[in-house]
Design a protein around this nucleic acid. Structure first.
Lengths: 239, 239
DNA sequence: CTCGGGCATAATATCGATACTTTGTTGCGC
DNA sequence: GCGCAACAAAGTATCGATATTATGCCCGAG
């Protein structure tokens, strides 16, 4: 029998978990809101046993990215206008809380990290030119915001903010499909955030961050009101 | 072969998960911070297979009540003064946020729920008289605070507050072992919270809640400073 | 006496099979 | 044609065994 576990950095479950998570949050990923995730399908796709898949899905469900229903397995979390509104409100409140503390308590090392992360972000293209969204930008974006808030020196608060941001990622594909906010200058928002943060101007920074978080959801909600929707348009009618 | 799965309300995993969680947060429970949780032990104890135990532990680890280390299994989260300080600070910030909104936006139904939950709490004894802490009180206490914040009408925010409170529960045994704050009038604090909430006096309510959350950690941290500790005293030296 | 290599032990991670549940379908009675 | 019960198909939940890894101990070299 061939040796199976060679050169493993981590466990199989860990790998599958990370891959599934990436794909779930990936704008180009193949998962639809509400879509059921069958254990055997995924087991075959990842060439792993059901146990491994199940553990990964369990973790994602615990994070609220999936929904686990006893005896009926797992499915991708459904999106709704109500949840988006709640999520956005919560994100603004908690994230501005963290930002205020970061600006107040962050040290010089923090400033450097913010500047560095911003530099990386600015140099990463949003799209790959072929209409495909660049997931590297997404990572750089997350890193920048992470660095910005790390100054609050509160692992617990940081963890909450990160979890909320990940949840919000699920909505990104929906924005992308429906709204085209070409007037928006995201790079400018980030530059302002960096400058206000380093200059220790908490209130202006909070203002920019609030708008930064609220803008896309506001556009999307306005759009759905105009078109009488309250859930994203299905791309794949088969559920 | 005998029929095994009869009259089941839920799945075995769900049951084991809930039982483990209860015990973990139970002041009288048997788990120590840092204690390793062996799959086979628990499987035998619960008369379930390792898979079932593993799924329950995975969920608890994802919540931060346990720590999962690849290839080395699960253990109860370690406690530390630094984490307690961070946790307490975060709890105050997030929970007062929720309280302000509840007081501002809560309707009459909310008021009724608060009053009812308070009544139950007031009628539930803290201790069973034999020195054993009464877990019913703990449940009533959680329900009261839950009801208080439910008025904020934000499932996301509520979820965060609940998760933080559960994390704080892990520290309760530590308080209990070391500090004896007999001057404290917890019932009075709850009464004030109820009254201020129903009277829509946000700021006084926030003040009481802040003190309510901070008091025990403050006492404990002061105690550990006096005695040069930064982790709870081991009751069971075998790790 | 101490340090390390190499084994024995014990625990986790993974697998594949089986028990059970849900769901869709077929066909019968009316 | 319609409702419903029994059945069939598909999927989840659970199990127990096996592969793999961590850990502690023993023992010999220095």
């Amino acid at each position: 029998m061939p040796t199976r576990y060679v050169d493993r950095v981590s466990t199989r479950t860990e790998q599958v978990y990370e891959e599934l998570r990436r794909e779930l949050l990936d704008l180009n990923g193949g998962f639809e809101p509400g879509q059921r995730l069958r254990l055997l399908d995924l087991a075959e796709r990842f060439d792993a046993s059901q146990s491994v898949i199940r553990e990964a899905l369990t973790r994602l469900a615990e994070q609220g990215l999936l929904v686990a229903t006893p005896q009926r397995g797992f499915s991708v979390r459904e999106l709704s206008v109500a949840d988006l509104a709640d999520l956005t409100r919560t994100r603004v409140q908690v994230e501005t809380l963290a930002l205020r503390q970061a600006v107040e308590h962050g040290d010089v090392t923090w400033e450097s990290t913010v500047v560095a992360a911003h530099h990386t972000l600015e140099r990463t293209p949003v799209s790959d030119g072929a209409g495909h969204f660049n997931e590297d930008w997404s990572a750089a974006h997350a890193s920048f915001h992470q660095a910005l808030l790390a100054g609050c020196a509160s692992p617990r608060l940081e963890g909450i903010v990160t979890a909320l941001r990940d949840s919000a990622e699920l909505y990104r594909r929906w924005y992308w499909a429906l709204t085209h906010d070409h007037a928006r200058d995201i790079a400018g928002e980030h530059r302002k955030l960096r400058d206000y943060a380093v200059a220790r101007k908490a209130e202006p920074a909070v203002k920019v961050l609030t708008e930064h978080i609220e803008r896309a959801p506001r556009e999307l909600i306005a759009y759905t009101r105009r078109h009488n929707l309250n859930a994203p348009p299905p791309r794949n009618p088969r559920r």
